[in-house]
Design a protein around this nucleic acid. Structure first.
Ligand SMILES: [Mn+2]
Ligand SMILES: [Mn+2]
Ligand SMILES: [Zn+2]
Ligand SMILES: [Zn+2]
Lengths: 143, 143
DNA sequence: CATATAGATTAGAATAATTCTAATTTAATA
DNA sequence: TATTAAATTAGAATTATTCTAATCTATATG
């Protein structure tokens, strides 16, 4: 965390208590929260926090490449404080999102007609599946 | 088209002129249009068409599995009338979307810790790249 | 430490995508 | 032709996000 703070300060990022609280909430967070999730949580610690500040901070972090937008839910953006490229698996029942740290670039050969039109730069995979909890729930139903 | 119509009628889908116009617009369309794109285009042929009907029809088609939602743009949903599973490549400059018809399932082995938590069912890949047109534009700039 | 100020925070308004509502119309069936 | 369940519609409601403009503050400087 100290390292993080030093880093942001060096980048000319003004370190306000609100931002520190948001950074603290996001650090190491693997829950892929929405803006509202972040606001609700952090407001407990900083009751004067405004929604606009959450969006402002998320935008600043996005511009710095510190967080990623996750477009799994067509209705609202989720955020991922892990900016190292990785993939996701989503439970089709409860929408739980898991991280997948594996680089598939070598095995993802594109067809010729695509390569002749696009110069590929990266990729992101959404896997779909059913999580343990939902599988257990299903089993219970069937009995 | 005739086949499509017969199919929908059989499924108890009331065939109104509005729906026929929307279906006609979507059939074979590879542009991945938004609801607004569809509304604008189809309104020319059916000026009384309402936005609600576009959304209603898209929802009905989605429930029937005839179209897919594309969540590339965090701000609005795009639709894909090609419901056969396939992947996409997006130009990071102009957001043009290309289709990729290739099944990568065999080469997408999931790490053990993931498989032990999720039972995988499918996958969708977003490739990122730069399209021909944007590459040409870039080159022009540099000269 | 006191001051200046660029940048951050805030509440609330504005915008945009999507969904809802309730009155009206219509495709399909008998 | 009459019936009716389903579809259409305009406009209101909802929700996520962005904008605005007034106020505040973290940081740099003397
Ligand atoms: Mn992640
Ligand atoms: Mn497609
Ligand atoms: Zn689940
Ligand atoms: Zn392009």
């Amino acid at each position: 965390m100290e390292k993080l703070i030093a880093k942001y300060r060096k980048e000319g990022f003004k370190l306000t208590p609100q931002r520190l609280a948001i950074l603290k909430f996001l650090e190491g967070n693997t829950s892929h929260p929405s803006a509202m999730d972040i606001y609700s949580e952090v407001k407990d610690a900083y009751p004067t926090l405004s929604f606009a500040t959450v969006y402002n901070t998320l935008q600043a972090l996005r511009n710095k490449g510190e967080i990623l937008e996750i477009t799994i839910n067509p209705q609202k953006t989720h955020y991922d404080p892990n900016s190292k490229p990785h993939h996701h698996i989503i439970c089709i029942k409860c929408k739980k999102i898991g991280d997948i740290f594996k680089d598939y670039s070598k095995v993802l050969q594109l067809p010729y007609d695509v390569v002749s039109e696009f110069k590929p730069l990266g990729n992101h995979i959404d896997f779909y599946g059913i999580c343990m909890r939902c599988r257990k729930k299903e089993r219970r139903y069937k009995l």
